[in-house]
Computed example of a mutant assay.
Amino acid sequence: MTEAAIFLPLAEAYDRWARVYDLQDNPMVFGASRIVERLAKTVRGQAVVELGCGTGRHLVLLKQNGADPLVGCDLSAGMLAQARARDLSLVLFQQDMAQPLPLADFSADLVLFSLVLEHMADMTGPLREAGRLLRPGGRIVVIEIHPFLSLSNVAAHFRDGGTIVEMPTFAHPFSDHLNAAAAAGLRIAQAREWHPRDFDGPVPDKLFKRGPDCPLLVEFELRPMTSDRQP
């Protein structure tokens, strides 16, 4: 039997997803969380901003590893309610990440995007805002569905009972990432492709749906093109 599918606006879809987001067996969410676990080993004493912070799972993990302060924004009130329930100390804003955050320039040592830029037709605005927030020596980390998959119609969706819920997504080839970074005054300092075989320990079976060598996620570290930015 074919499952029914509905298409919802972005905030409405994530509001509906929020209650079960951290409970579902989602290989992309699992992989992104493992990448952030690795990143967390490097954040002690750093100020972190996550654009598209969702349920706050990454911010709490970074906090547990010594990051402070921690700020997040998200378009979905439902996702932010989950984040507040997880940790009341998080500073959270409900807004479109393409709009300027009410934060001063040079506020962050790390700006994180995880599985959110696929929802932006043009990634330049959020990346430019991330660059504005970045302190000298800071970095922006982007984790996204690998372009090989996104260009094959793999995109954010979830099952709610017998219904598949879809939402606005945009498949970005590598050129989109390169061009958006350059337009925002950023350069790609490092890039890594993540495959199912790269994740240690227990992993969900769904991770190997396309085999151990199929690239699932891509991770970019972005830094300003010029090193003369001063607070």
Rank of each mutant, 00 (worst) to 15 (best):
A189F: 06
P126V: 00
R159M: 01
I188G: 03
M120L: 05
A191K: 15
V49C: 11
V49F: 04
S76M: 13
G125W: 10
A155D: 10
A182D: 13
V43K: 13
L115P: 05
R223S: 10
P147R: 12
L59M: 06
E193I: 12
L127N: 01
V218Y: 09
R19A: 08
E221M: 13
P9H: 05
Q95A: 04
D25Y: 03
A155L: 03
V29A: 02
L8H: 06
S227Q: 14
L90I: 01
A77N: 11
R38A: 14
L90V: 06
E144F: 01
D105K: 07
F7M: 01
Q64G: 15
R159K: 11
A189Q: 13
F148V: 02
G54T: 12
Q46E: 09
I188Q: 11
P9K: 12
D74F: 00
G72N: 06
N26C: 13
H195D: 02
G72Q: 03
D198K: 01
L70R: 02
L178R: 08
E118M: 13
A180I: 00
V20R: 04
R44Q: 10
H58V: 10
D105L: 08
I145G: 07
D122C: 06
K209I: 13
V142M: 04
K206Q: 15
A81H: 07
L75W: 00
L62K: 12
D176R: 06
S227H: 14
P147V: 10
A171N: 03
L103H: 06
G162L: 05
A183G: 06
T55R: 00
A130Q: 08
R159S: 01
V43D: 14
L101Y: 05
Q46S: 07
E3Q: 09
S89N: 15
D96V: 02
Q24C: 04
A182K: 13
S150C: 14
L134Y: 10
L39T: 12
D87Y: 09
L70S: 08
L134T: 15
V165Q: 00
F208G: 00
D200R: 12
P9N: 11
T124E: 07
S150I: 11
M120W: 00
S150E: 09
A156R: 03
R16I: 00
E12P: 02
G56M: 09
I143M: 10
P168I: 04
E221Q: 08
R192W: 11
A40D: 15
A191V: 13
L75I: 15
V218P: 02
F7T: 03
G45N: 15
L8T: 05
P202L: 11
Q230V: 14
G54F: 12
E3M: 02
A13D: 09
I145F: 03
V36K: 03
L92V: 10
G56F: 11
P102D: 12
W17G: 00
D160H: 07
A108G: 11
P215N: 06
R135Y: 12
F174M: 15
G161Q: 01
W17P: 00
L92W: 09
G78A: 06
L80F: 07
A81N: 06
A121H: 08
P136Y: 14
V91R: 13
H177E: 07
R34P: 12
F113E: 09
G161L: 03
L151K: 01
R128C: 03
A32W: 03
L8W: 02
L149G: 10
D205H: 12
E12W: 01
T226I: 14
S150V: 01
D15V: 00
R34G: 05
R86K: 13
Q46N: 07
R86N: 02
